[in-house]
Design a protein around this nucleic acid. Structure first.
Lengths: 229, 229, 229, 229
DNA sequence: AATGAATGAGAATTCATTCAT
DNA sequence: TATGAATGAATTCTCATTCAT
C-alpha cells in the first residue's frame, strides 16, 4: 500500500520527467514541430498521462518555458548580489547568463524561437520573465553611469548584444557541428572554446560601455546622431 | 504571337507570388507551423499550383529562405565595395544588414528560427549563404587589424553581437507591440527609433573593436584570458 | 479485474475487422484502386484507427494478402497428409485449393492481380507463400513418377493448369454474372455448378499426368460426377 | 506548309505512340495504378495531348485493351483456318495464343487484371473479345468429339486450363526474375524455355482430351520436343 | 494540333485530444 | 494514477481534367 507521501512523490517525479522531455523536444522542434508522442516517449510515460498531468500542448509549452526562465532569473539575481562594482556586476550578469545558457542547451533554441514568433499567443508569464532579466541589466548600467564608470548607453542595445551573441553562439554549436564550412568561417580554433568566447564577450562589452576611452568622444565615423550623451 | 514569352512571364509571376506569400507565412509561423493552404490563399493561387511549381513544402521553404539570404549577400557586398577605410566598411556592413533586416520584416524571425533549429535537415545552400555573410565581416576586421585601427578580436563574437542585436531588436518589435511591459523595460522612447538604435549599435561596436582606447589595455576586470592580442 | 485480457481481446477484434474489410476491398479494387476510407467504413472503425493498428496502406496490403495465403498453405498441407496414394494426394491438392478459392471469394482476384503486378515491391512473404504451395505439388508429382503412376511432367505446367483454371473459373463468376454472352460461351448449364467444374478439372489433370491408360478410364478416385460422357 | 495527308499521318502517329505507352503503363500498374503523366512521358507527348486525342482515362484504357485483344482474335482465326484435323487445330489454337502472349508482354498482366476486376465498369467490347476467343475453342472441341478423336469435355475447363497456364507462365516471368526461390520451385532449368513450356502444355492438353489412349503415346502432332519421359 | 499552366476533388497520413478501463 | 485504444479535424500531397494560348 502506498503512503500519501509516496504517491505525491511519484506524481512529482512523473511531472518532472514530462517537463524535462518537453524541454528537449520543444528546444529541438519548436512548438509547432514538437510531437506529444515524442515527448511521451522520451519521458517514458503514456501519451494520455501528459494530458492527465498537464492539460494540453499549449499549457505544457508554457510551463516548460517558464520553468526554464524562472531559474535563470533567480541565478542572475543571486550572482549580481555577490558583486559590488558596476563592472563586476556587468561581468557577473554576462557570465551567469552565459553559464545558464551553456548548462541548459535547450534555452538558446527556445528563446530564439520565442523571439521569432513574437511570443505568439502565449500567456504573459514568458514575456514577464524576460522583462525581469532586462530590468536587472538596466539597473547595473544606470548605476555605472551614476558612478561615472559607464557611458550613457541604451540598455536595450547592450542587452541585445549580450543576449544575442551568447544565444547565437550557443545555438550555433549545432550548426557548426553539422557544417564544416561554418566552423571555418568562425575560425573555430579560437572560438570553439566557450569560456574563451564568454570572456571575449565580456571584454568587448566592457570596452563598449566603459567611460574612459578617447574614441567615444570622436564618435562613429559616418553618422552623428548616436545614442550617446 | 509572343506565346513563348508570355508563358514564361506568367510562370515567373506566379512563382514570385508563391515565394512572397511563403516568405510571410514561414516568417510568422516557422516551417512546421506554416500551412500550405495559407500560403496558397495569400498567393492567390490554388494549393496544387504550389506543388506544380515548387514540389513540396521543404523545397518551398528552402527556396524561400535562400531567396532572402541571397539578396542580402549581394547588398552587403555592394555596400562594402563603396567604402574605403575599415571603420567605414564596418559601419556599412552593420548599416546594410540593419537596413535589409528592417526592409524585410520576414528576415529576423526566419534567421532566428534557422539558428534555433540548427538548420535541421535542409540543403547546404542556407548555411552556405550564412558563411558568406560572416566571411565578409572577417575580411573587414582583418584589414582593420593590419592597418592598426582595430584590436585583434574574434570575428565570430563581433559578428554575433551585430547580428544578434539587430535581429533581436527587429524581432522584438512584434513582442513590444504586444507587451507593454517589455516596451517600458526597453525604454521605448529612446530605442523605438530604429535608426537611433542602429547608429547606437554602430557606435558601440566601433568602441568595442577600436584600437586606441586606453581601456583596452586594462582589460576585463575579472578574467584575464581574453581574445585580444 | 480482467483489464489486460479484455484490452488484448479488443485489439485483436479490431484488427480482425480491419483485415477482413481490407480483404474485401483489396479483392474488389486492387492495391491502387482500394481506398482506406472505404476499408475503414466497412470495418466500422475510424480511418485513423487503421493507421494506429497497422501503419500504412502497403503494410495493410501485405498483412492482408499474407493472412489469406498462409491459411491456404495450412489447409492444403493438412488435406494432403490425410491421403496415401499420389493420385489421392493430387485430387486432394486440387480439391483443397478449389474449396479454399471457393470459400474465400477474395482469393482469386487477389492472386490474379498479384501475378499481374509481378508482386511489385512487396515484402518477400507473399512470394514465399506461393513457393510453398507449388512445392507441395512438386512432391506429389515426384512421388507419383517414382511409384510409376504418373508420367514425368513439368510440375510448373501442371500447377499452372490447376491454379489457372480454378482461379479463372472463380474470378469469372463475377464477369459471367455481368455479361450474359460470356455465360453462354461457357455453356453455363454445365459449368456453372462449381463442384462439377472442380471434378472436371481433377479428371482432366489426372488424365493428363496418369501413366497407365487404364487409370484414365477409371476416373477420379473420389467423386464420380465427372464432366465426361 | 503541311499537306492534308501529312497532318493525318502525324495524328495517327501520335495516336499510336499514346496507345503504345498506355499499353505498357496499364500492363505494369493496372487501371487505377496507371498515371496519365507517366503515359504522356513515355509517349513523348504533353499530357493535354492525350485528352485532346483520346478523351479520358477510361476511354484510353478501353481502346488500349481492345486494340490488344482484337489483334489476337484475328491471329487465332487465321491460324486455325490453315489446319485441318481437330488435333492440329487445337495445337494451333494453343500455340497462337501462346505466341501472342509471348510477343505482347502486356497481354498477360492486362488480362489477369481484367479477370480479377470482373471487367469492372468497362464497355462491353472487352468481354465480347473474350467471348470470341472462347467460341473458337468450343468449335474445335465439338468437331473433335463428333469425329471421335476427343472425349466430351467442358470447353470452359479446357479453355481455362490453356489460358490459365499460358498467362500465368508469362506473368510469372517477372516474378521469377525477382524471386530466386520461385524459380527453383518451378525447376527453372526445364520450364524456363518458353517453347518447351508451350509444347508441354499442348501435350498435356491433348492427353487430357484425347479419346484413344494410343494418341497420348504418339504426342502432339506438330512438335516432338515435349516434356514427357 | 499541341502544350504549359492551373485546378477541384480527392487520397494518404498525422496529430492533439478524448475515452474506457 | 495511468494507459491502450480510438478518433475528428486537419494537413500534405496527388491526379485526372480543363483552360488559355
Amino acid at each position: 500500500m502506498m503512503t500519501y507521501e509516496s504517491i505525491t512523490r511519484k506524481r512529482i517525479e512523473t511531472n518532472r520527467r514530462i517537463l524535462d522531455a518537453a524541454k528537449d523536444v520543444f528546444a529541438e522542434s519548436g512548438f509547432a514541430g514538437a510531437r506529444i508522442d515524442e515527448i511521451a516517449l522520451r519521458a517514458g510515460v503514456n501519451k494520455a498521462t501528459i494530458y492527465y498531468h498537464i492539460g494540453n500542448k499549449k499549457t505544457l509549452y508554457t510551463e516548460t518555458i517558464h520553468g526554464v526562465l524562472e531559474k535563470t532569473v533567480e541565478k542572475i539575481a543571486l550572482a549580481i548580489g555577490k558583486s559590488s562594482t558596476p563592472e563586476e556586476k556587468l561581468c557577473c550578469y554576462i557570465r551567469t547568463i552565459a553559464r545558464t545558457i551553456d548548462d541548459n542547451p535547450q534555452m538558446a533554441p527556445i528563446i530564439l524561437r520565442e523571439m521569432a514568433s513574437g511570443t505568439h499567443h502565449i500567456p504573459d508569464i514568458i514575456p514577464m520573465d524576460m522583462v525581469q532579466i532586462i530590468g536587472m541589466l538596466s539597473e547595473i548600467l544606470e548605476e555605472g553611469v551614476q558612478k561615472g564608470v559607464f557611458v550613457n548607453t541604451m540598455p536595450a542595445i547592450v542587452h541585445l548584444m549580450i543576449i544575442g551573441s551568447l544565444l547565437f553562439y550557443k545555438a550555433g554549436e549545432n550548426i557548426r557541428r553539422q557544417h564544416r564550412e561554418l566552423s571555418l568561417a568562425f575560425n573555430e580554433s579560437d572560438s570553439e572554446n566557450p569560456s574563451k568566447f564568454i570572456s571575449g564577450v565580456e571584454k568587448l562589452i566592457i570596452r563598449a560601455v566603459a567611460g574612459h576611452s578617447e574614441f567615444s568622444r570622436r564618435g562613429s565615423p559616418s553618422e552623428q546622431n548616436g545614442a550617446e550623451e
